[in-house]
Amino acid sequence: MNKRHDHLFPGMLMLLGIVFILTAARTGSATDPSDYLDLDRLGDRYGEVAFDHALHADYAACSECHHHTTGEAPSDPVCAACHQAGDEAESVSCATCHPVQPFAVELIEQKANSTRYHIDIVGLQGAYHLNCLSCHEAIGGPTGCTDCHQSQP
């Protein structure tokens, strides 16, 4: 067992090194707060997904994923009916608006209020998959499960 780990360790170090170099090479691009994010809020169900934020910032406008929260005009016309440019939010984190447990009892009760407009905000899992997959399909990005997720044992 130990011997096998001895072989693995330098390999992992090298991999980490490569990731580090790649990340370092991207510093300076206009993204905030970090260029490499570990999407781990759903870590109990999936292995964390290493998300290259800087790479994606090259492909898409902030509003494609962050809607209006970064202060850009939302690209979705449905959102643009109310939210305008400069309508930034305190937090740009996905999980601030897209709950990890979208069907929690208190959220279902809130949605039952017939005067509430936002009754259809998808959960975090749904938000990732719907937004990521639709764009990946459109521009030919990877769409396989294990392209983002580590395969489960």
Binding site: I119, Q125, H129
Partner: peptide, 19 residues
Amino acid sequence: EACPTEALTFGERETLLRI
């Protein structure tokens, strides 16, 4: 809970009709 794309939305039937 398992649906990755939230193709399945759970809630009160009346709310679901509105959604």
